[in-house]
Write a protein that binds this DNA or RNA. Sequence first.
DNA 1: CTGATTTGTAACTAATAAAGTTACATGAAA
DNA 2: TTTCATGTAACTTTATTAGTTACAAATCAG
Lengths: 149, 149
Amino acid sequence: MKRNGKLSASLHALLHMAERPERPMTSEEIASWLNTNPVVVRRMVAGLRDAGILSSARGHGGGWTLARPAETITLAEVTAALNERLIAFSTEPENPRCLVERAVNDALDGVRDEIEHLLSQRLAQVTLADIAAQCGPGVAAHLENRHAH
Amino acid sequence: MKRNGKLSASLHALLHMAERPERPMTSEEIASWLNTNPVVVRRMVAGLRDAGILSSARGHGGGWTLARPAETITLAEVTAALNERLIAFSTEPENPRCLVERAVNDALDGVRDEIEHLLSQRLAQVTLADIAAQCGPGVAAHLENRHAH
DNA sequence: CTGATTTGTAACTAATAAAGTTACATGAAA
DNA sequence: TTTCATGTAACTTTATTAGTTACAAATCAG
């Protein structure tokens, strides 16, 4: 998995699950799609389970399944469940007593809050089903070609 | 300097320069404000010089000065000059032949482009002078207190 | 019940990216 | 002509992230 690739990787996994909602998928399978290993997958999607987006089952025939229909899962929810900070600039003070630094960081914090809010709104407009539709109308008919690794 | 702290640090430095536009400030001085060292400062602000925001002078009495008034320098320009990517999620493909992954990354790329544009618009509304004004009306009268390290 | 299978997690290791450092060249002023 | 400053390349250090190993806990098939 690429660095800072958790959002992309999670969505990738969720979409494959959306294609076969009836069948639980193991961390092992998911890991092979994402070029990573099962433990990383479990760690990554643990938040999605806690957020009620996925359910997991242990043991024989276990694995991961969508906890609700793809139409009801927005990218905003997925993003929030991952606890990733998407806006990258730091506003940690280097010297808290400097008023100039404080003013700079306050201004940047304000901008970040606004932009995170806008980002969240924008991500809330897209569901997993919307992206699945973008895979092309032929995709549903060619399941076996979707992962030609 | 903190990680991903270049935007904050650069603005911090620029504001101190805006306070004394007549006097060139050395990389050494700036570095001490930012808790870092002069070479890191030079590297960081090189882009600001190239963008016409700062001018530099070598030798005796040299250093860095604002190339134009603080009222005309927006945060958007500063951000662009730093060549930092502020939206942090990766959309590098893990497996380019997977249509699902492509659809996910295309969607995310679209969102990122939109948000980066909004961010840039928002940052364009704020000038260095605006932030200086936020330091409080008393600041100009107490220059010596602004860096009580 | 027992063994196979799968998630859950802690602890550790490796890779990567970012900042810091050293070294030295270049240019300007005293 | 010495001192002070930027400019930059090469290298080192640090912090973060991903990857790995190891093992416990749960579930199901037989």
